[in-house]
Design a protein around this nucleic acid. Structure first.
Lengths: 273, 273
DNA sequence: CGCTGCTTTGACTGTGATCAAGGCCTGTGG
DNA sequence: CCACAGGCCTTGATCACAGTCAAAGCAGCG
């Protein structure tokens, strides 16, 4: 992950979100610069604290720069459902562009650096630059595709398969974000987090993780995940990564206005090592 | 549901989708007309048949004009997860604007009339009319908000509460679409459909529906749902409708360019009778 | 050290799945 | 008009996956 300092940005930032957006809809250098300039500042959020609270009405869009976070929803009896894991480059609340009240919370899983983009600035960009709107919209759409998968995962798969599926998804996203090394990644989630994400109890997650370990599919200790047997892990989770839209990359610049007729046939898919 | 014939549209169409979009971002008469003209034709799909198949690459966006449909995903062993119910005015595959391959199927629940909008036409509109892009994007966002709720519903609520929650959601959406009359609506879904939507078995759905009936919350027979006790049904499902964004209506025309500073305080919510 | 938070274990329970059969309704064809 | 078939709903019996409760081990950390 090369981190060239950004000239126009008020902080020594990270471009992961730009790179991610560029994957969706090619951006001109001007558009890239405008997006970078829209970022107004960063803050640190300590582990296990809210980045955005349910019910608040933020006037800024937040963006994970470093660390891991999750979207969650709380029920009246204290049960929690995690609806998404967020990694560097992910927007917390793009939805705030269209709605005022947060109807979910966002919490830091480990210590996070969070950047802010004023809603108004982003709206101005959107109105003037359709490609930026498109790129952001696509982000929303991929979010929705992930929700889709989680729904079938939670609704129709066994606990064992669910966890396998989730781990596969996480690895693929990490891979695309340059956070995977040698089949391994930092994964500072607790078993309770996994349970809340997959609609299971902590105890049962513990037992299923043990089984995954016993079956030789993964190693998962001290907040670090290592996949030992990709084919079998993917098979166990019936995982099929196309919904993540992780194409191998960077539509050529010359075609930037041709988003309508981008080739129908599949772009090369990044094969996980 | 008044159905004034549309002058510029090639068919005696229905404007429900325009009305729905207008709820999100006020459209000028010109924009409305452009959208209506983008619709190229309709087709009938018989009950229980695919409107769009998983794996296909449609070049058109489909739109439910009449009838009910669902998005679904099939697992290798034949299990099915329904991820959304679609009613008149809903887009089946807006996602196709950004991705070629359908990664889910859409099936008609009863006999459906489906309108088509060529992707290219819609893309042209989007590029030239940021408000149309915004309105469609918002549609995607509300879809995502519904997925969010379904996730917590399936992940963390009991079968009884899940079904209650789903029925509440359906009623509110029907209400907004003018399909609810006297606390009653047509609901041609089978108990198997409900089961596939909520991650339950058909048998268990049957028993929970019986309990909901026995408790005096609903009547549900011959494809027609009647809610007998709103407060208790909402309580049973812990239902809280704000995520559906069904505000009472029609932001005044004069403010149409002011989507940035729409009032932060809550718009009046339609109270269900 | 002794917290505190996370993981692990065991015993027990229960929600909801599975299997199987029968009933009911509607549409169809003889 | 009746017989039949195919969906769909309903019921009962049994089973298992996963939840709950409780307690003990194990870090890391101030």
């Amino acid at each position: 992950m090369e981190t060239k300092p950004l000239i126009h940005s008020p902080f020594e930032g990270d471009q992961s979100f730009i790179r991610k957006l560029a994957r969706f809809a090619p951006l001109t250098p001007t558009e890239t610069r405008l997006l970078q300039n829209a970022v107004v500042g960063q803050r640190e959020v300590t582990a296990r604290h809210d980045i955005l609270s349910e019910g608040s009405s933020p006037t800024e869009i937040s963006l994970i720069v470093k660390g891991y976070a999750c979207r969650y929803l709380l029920l009246s009896d204290g049960r929690r459902q995690i609806t998404a894991f967020l990694i560097p480059g992910d927007f917390c609340n793009l939805r705030a562009l269209h709605t005022d009240r947060m109807d979910f919370g966002v919490a830091a899983i480990d210590c996070c650096r969070v950047a802010r983009v004023p809603r108004q600035k982003l709206c101005e960009l959107i109105e003037k630059h359709p490609h930026i709107a498109l790129a952001l919209w696509r982000d929303t759409i991929i979010d929705a595709a992930i929700y889709h998968q989680w729904l079938t995962n939670i609704g129709r798969r066994s606990a064992y398969a669910r966890i396998a599926h989730l781990l596969c998804e996480v690895c693929w996203r990490f891979q695309a974000a340059g956070l995977l090394r040698q089949h391994s990644c930092e994964l500072p989630v607790t078993q309770t987090d996994l349970a809340d994400a997959m609609g299971l109890s902590t105890v049962h997650v513990n037992r299923m993780l043990q089984k995954l370990r016993a079956d030789g599919l993964i190693r998962f200790q001290s907040r670090s995940l290592c996949v030992l047997d990709w084919p079998r892990l993917q098979a166990a989770g019936e995982f099929e990564p196309s919904y993540l839209q992780l194409h191998a990359e960077q539509t050529p610049r010359g075609r930037r206005d041709a988003f309508l007729d981008r080739s129908r046939d599949d772009k090369e898919i990044i094969a996980l090592p």
